[in-house]
Design a protein around this nucleic acid. Structure first.
Lengths: 339, 339
DNA sequence: GTGAAAGCGCTAACAC
DNA sequence: GTGTTAGCGCTTTCAC
């Protein structure tokens, strides 16, 4: 299965053409110390002339690939756009590039395959992997985890303030007079109590707020299908309850948008009034759309992505003490929760 | 499954532990010819035991990285989700993996950086790069281009049938009695006549259909901001014309959704009836949402992504004659164009 | 069927 | 300041 890639120009070609050693070219490439301006000049113009581009594979084998891997569990999740945007912004102007690795199955596999020498560092959104396993991984390659409320020693974390964000949603809904408030969330494997995933925290806060408000008996939790499908059916099931909720707090905007779909369908079919409030999380682009107009929690996804990339760059510079960044949240109230 | 601390285990470690040569391990790894069952067995269990994972960089340097690069111009575009999904599906079960490279600026850079030995092949969505340049690139590494209506010799192409798709939209709108039909499209650099980009074709078809219907004087083309922002302002400008269009044909669903936003805002502000029909292209998930319910052209994005990946795999198997795949389109009529 | 050995393109010590 | 050299981990003839 060997592919003949057209032979490209190597560092030796450049060295020969410029009449210097390969090491000299390498130094120019990396802005390393010990190159005279004259030689730098000569080498650079030779590089330009020959159209030389360093082989990432060869560099990676010896030093760094100048690639940062960003693992994304689900390509379609709108929140990812913010993260990617932030990460791209943070590496702009550095020699590093972001590559995205869509998780095609168990996230362990994706992360390992990233760690197989392809990238210099990893940003990942993997609530499902074990902390110990991650600490091991982090010994091999710098790691920044997004959305994990653990406090590991070996890697950095970037999270939103899920406690505050979820509480803001609940207080908003309660202050509106809602009592039958349901929570629409991810499958159970992502919300195990104490697991420290964002969705487990949001769920816990939901439960706590309901209990505090004396509404423990009104707690209703619906979950989207494990298969990664949409949450419309789960939301529809809520609406079909004998005493349907008057408000749905969805774990993120994508599910909230699905909930709005379920509500709209119920309205169309049953002719019921659109009395169900819906709130989401992440404040994705779509939330501001006038036809959606979704109340949502802004947790500064772009900033989170940028922080994650910046922290990874810091680790590549040598930092080894862990850092844990928590992004502030702000509730954006829109008409989806209007009275 | 276990990751060892510190320096990772290499092929030599495996060879030593299994009491064979490195070459033997390599052969087992690649299912190459000339390994006895006994030895294979022994090597495999050693690999398992040591948690050995081959270095992608080292493999890439000598042979293949088993990574396919998918360049995506804009992470937020909803159509991309379909492409990625299809590509992932096509490589499932092969030793290859998809990595995504978000274009952070000029697409030339992104493509070159992919070609720098990182991946064995490239799938790209880059209407803006020159065909000659691509042919050069394709000499170095197998390339499949999405959404280019050129017929190059050096690389494969996968497109939708933009002629048929755009015509279906226009015929639909015309049959509904619309005469003031506007087209909302990308900035001019993406729609240059004859450039063969999907959006240039859709625009040409729009113009042709209008002319054929005797509506040449009603042609109105609005473009979204070059900076990559949304198309709401462009759509709003259309609606603010003295004689606003009664229908907007948007170049893709993202812009159509923006158009719906502009319409909704106009309705809210001016109290006008919602009389503007909107049609999109790509039939993204959101189009089916009851609150959006957007008429759109299904061009089988998932299938396109899968085809592209499959064709790339074929090239990696040795095919060198170019293939050009055109996906059939189907108009999905929804209430956004209801009378 | 199996192993020794020569690189792939680059970086990093260490000479000069 | 510049060049020489020894690998990084792997694949791949080519002997045995």
């Amino acid at each position: 299965m060997s592919i003949r890639k057209g032979r490209s120009v190597t560092i030796s070609d450049v060295a020969e053409a410029a009449g210097v050693s390969r090491a000299a070219v390498s130094k120019v490439l990396r802005n390393a110390y010990g190159v005279s301006p004259g030689m730098r000049q000569r080498v650079e113009s030779t590089i330009e002339q020959l159209g030389y581009r360093p082989s990432v594979a060869a560099r990676a084998l010896r030093g760094s690939s100048y690639r940062l891997g960003l693992e994304i569990p689900y390509t379609g999740a709108r929140f990812m756009t913010q993260i990617v945007e932030g990460a791209k912004r943070a590496v702009a102007g550095t020699p590093y590039q972001i590559i995205l690795a869509p998780a095609d199955g168990p996230e362990y596999d994706t992360l390992e395959s990233l760690a197989d020498g392809l990238v210099d560092g990893i940003i990942a959104i993997s609530p499902l992997v074990d902390q110990g396993w991650l600490e091991d991984l982090a010994r091999r390659v710098p790691v920044v985890m997004l959305g994990r409320h653990d406090t590991p020693a070996g890697y950095d974390t970037v999270t939103g303030d899920d406690h505050a964000g979820a509480r803001a949603v609940m207080e908003h809904l309660l202050s509106l007079g809602h009592r039958r408030i349901a929570h629409l969330t991810e499958p159970e494997n992502v919300t195990a109590p104490g697991s420290g995933t964002p969705h487990s925290v949001r769920l816990e806060v939901y439960r706590a707020c309901m209990a505090e408000a004396g509404l423990a008996d009104q707690i209703r939790v619906a979950r989207r299908d494990v298969s990664g499908g949409d949450a419309v059916a789960a939301a529809a099931a809520l609406l079909a309850l004998p005493e349907p909720p008057t408000a749905i707090f969805a774990g993120h905007d994508d599910m909230a948008v699905d909930a709005l779909a379920a509500v709209a369908r119920a309205v169309a079919v049953a002719g019921r009034d659109k009395t169900v409030a819906v709130a989401g999380y992440d404040n994705t682009d779509l939330a501001a759309h006038p036809l959606i107009d979704l109340t949502s929690v802004d947790q500064q996804g772009v900033e989170m992505g940028a922080q994650a990339a910046t922290m990874l760059l810091e680790r590549l510079q040598g930092r080894s003490e862990p850092r844990h960044y928590v992004a502030a949240t702000q509730l954006r109230i829109r008409s989806s929760t209007a009275l």
